[in-house]
Amino acid sequence: MNNRRQGRGKSRLLTQTSYIYDGKVKNPAVKVYDSNAKLVSSKYYTVSKSSGRKNVGKYKYTITFKNG
């Protein structure tokens, strides 16, 4: 599975995209890269996560950049 997504000159990367169910909430780290493949500091964006990540299913992570 490809966990890197492209869009608007940036790419996002989840450290892990699938897990084995163990009844615990999963929180993969999110890394954002600019168009030059340089890591973007987390002070420039926020990550919102879907609730209920303890249950089996697919969940959405939304990355919102600060100040445009």
Rank of each mutant, 00 (worst) to 15 (best):
L39E: 07
R5Y: 15
Y45F: 12
T17E: 06
Y44D: 06
R12I: 15
K58E: 10
R4Q: 15
Y19M: 06
R4F: 11
S51K: 13
K49S: 06
S51Y: 05
G23Y: 09
M1T: 11
L39H: 01
V30E: 00
S50Y: 08
I63G: 01
T64K: 14
A37E: 13
R5D: 15
Y61P: 00
Y45Q: 02
S18V: 14
S35H: 07
T46R: 13
G57D: 08
G9P: 07
K60A: 14
K24M: 07
V47L: 05
M1V: 12
N2C: 00
K49P: 01
V56G: 03
T17H: 13
I63P: 02
G7P: 12
V30D: 04
T64R: 13
Y45L: 04
Y59L: 04
D22Y: 06
Y33M: 03
S35Y: 06
S48C: 02
L39A: 08
V30C: 05
K58V: 06
N67K: 10
N36Y: 11
K43N: 08
V56A: 08
G57A: 12
G9W: 06
K24R: 14
V56I: 15
G9V: 10
K54E: 14
K60I: 12
R53H: 03
V56Q: 08
S18T: 15
V32T: 07
D34S: 03
Y61W: 01
Q16T: 15
S48G: 02
A37H: 05
S18Y: 13
K54F: 09
S11P: 00
N2E: 13
V30W: 03
K60Q: 14
K26I: 09
K31T: 12
I63K: 02
G7E: 08
A37W: 09
R4L: 13
T17N: 14
V47Y: 00
Y33L: 03
G68S: 09
K58M: 09
I63C: 05
Y19K: 03
N55M: 10
S51L: 10
N27L: 12
F65W: 08
Y21E: 11
A37P: 01
K54Q: 13
R53Y: 10
T64M: 08
I63F: 00
S35F: 05
A37F: 09
S42E: 10
N3E: 15
L14D: 04
K60C: 02
G57K: 11
Y61N: 02
R5W: 15
K60Y: 03
R53N: 05
G52M: 04
D22W: 08
G9Q: 07
Y33W: 02
D34R: 06
N3S: 12
V25K: 14
K60G: 01
L13V: 11
G9N: 05
L39D: 01
K24L: 12
Y59R: 04
Y45R: 03
Q6G: 10
T17V: 12
T17I: 13
Y19S: 10
Y33S: 03
K31P: 03
L14T: 07
F65N: 04
V56P: 03
T64V: 09
G23M: 08
N27V: 05
N55V: 07
K66D: 05
A37R: 05
N67W: 04
Y59D: 02
L39C: 01
N36K: 08
